[in-house]
């Protein structure tokens, strides 16, 4: 048995880490899908090759995150998912389309490849937009009124562009030559998505809730938290500066757009986590009110502490095996 007060906090942290890993990892492969219309056919093959060995495991972080919500906070799970019924359905159909298009485009008769490419793009777009929409609705307290839905539509667009930015960063990292140069252009076009998205959420969150406003803008918090927006701003400037000079000789700094985008997402996530803590359903239900029994959480935690390092280990192994520039995908 673990401490009944600590357990919900541990699970909220685990769930947060899963969501963050999902947003970064599936973010880049969703982004690659979003960039499909801007690429030629042979470029699309190479982009697919760069995410082929990873996408399935990346999506598993979403299953873990939703699984942790389901098992650790069953009451919140019902509240959040019934409120987000439609966007969840759109996301699921999007995930289905892109997941299967991935396989079908390589195995279907030659003439069918293009429709499956369109399905891959459409599925990625549905997934990205609905996730951004859910993010906005969550920030707005899960209430379906027009101004709030309008805000959610804004974050939907912003997250999709942000995903395409980190996707372009991935392509810069994993390819070379003409495609890499093209991806630098895509990244330049997509960086505003991250700025707009993070800016909108940062501006709106304190306005929606007095509690969150006080958390950020009372002294000394405001001074302690200042590095968060300052570092984010600095990163955006550095990214913009780097993108104007990439690709560099000897492929130096090809990793920077992807790592920079990841760092921005981590910072944005930390800010949001700070705002909403200790609530899991915004302003309604805290993690302690929504948590499962101590006994059930204990039994999951034992397994998690044992298994999670192993999962991390073989995930790193997979990224190590498929390191370097992406080559043509083959089963041989």
């Amino acid at each position: 048995m673990f401490d009944p007060v600590a357990l919900p906090f541990i699970f909220a942290t685990l769930m947060g880490v899963s969501i963050l890993l999902y947003v970064v990892l599936d973010g880049f492969d969703l982004g690659v899908g979003l960039l499909f219309p801007f690429a030629e056919e042979d470029e699309r093959d190479r982009m697919i090759a760069s995410i082929g060995p990873f996408w399935d495991a990346n999506e598993t972080w979403l299953v873990l995150a939703i699984g942790l919500l389901l098992v650790a906070f069953p009451v919140a799970h019902g509240d959040i998912l019934t409120a987000l019924y439609l966007p969840v359905a759109v996301m699921l159909i999007g995930l289905i389309l892109r997941g299967v298009a991935f396989e079908f485009r390589a195995k279907a008769p030659l003439g069918h490849k293009r429709p499956w490419d369109v399905a891959f793009w459409a599925g990625s777009l549905m997934t990205a937009l609905s996730q951004g929409f859910m993010l906005g609705m969550y920030v707005m307290g899960l209430e379906w009124t027009w101004p709030k839905v309008g805000f959610a539509l804004l974050t939907a667009g912003a997250l999709a562009v942000a995903y395409s930015f980190i996707g372009a960063g991935w392509v810069i990292l994993k390819t070379d030559g003409a495609l890499q140069r093209k991806a630098v252009g895509w990244a330049k076009g997509g960086i505003w998505g991250i700025v707009l998205g993070m800016g909108a959420v940062s501006a709106a969150t304190p306005l929606v809730s007095q509690r969150i406003f006080d958390k950020w803008f009372s002294f000394p918090e405001v001074a302690l938290l200042a590095p968060l927006p300052l570092v984010s701003g600095g990163l955006v400037v550095a990214l913009w500066y780097a993108l104007r000079r990439l690709p560099a000789d000897g492929d130096r700094f090809a990793w920077f757009p992807f790592v920079g985008a990841t760092a921005l997402m981590v910072l944005g996530f930390c800010g949001m986590a700070y705002s909403f803590y200790p609530y899991i359903v915004p302003e309604k239900l805290t993690i302690w009110e929504a948590a499962s029994s101590t006994e059930a959480l204990s039994i999951i935690l034992v397994g998690t502490l044992f298994v999670l390092p192993v999962i991390m280990g073989y995930t790193v192994l997979a990224y190590f095996i498929f390191r370097g520039k992406a080559t043509k995908l083959s089963y041989d």
Binding site: G52, P53, F54, D56, A57, E59, T60, V63, L64, G67, L68, L70, V71, A72, P74, S292, A296, I299, I300, G303, T304, V307, L308, I311, Y314, T315, L317, A318, I321, F322, L329, S330, Y331, D332
Partner: peptide
């Protein structure tokens, strides 16, 4: 909850990660 959690932890990640190696890692 715990049963589903154990499925994700002991099965889903295992199959998803090693599937990539199984399909594309032979060379």
């Amino acid at each position: 909850g715990p049963l589903l959690a154990y499925e994700v932890l002991t099965a889903f990640f295992l199959e998803a990660v090693f599937l990539g190696i199984m399909l594309f890692g032979a060379s």
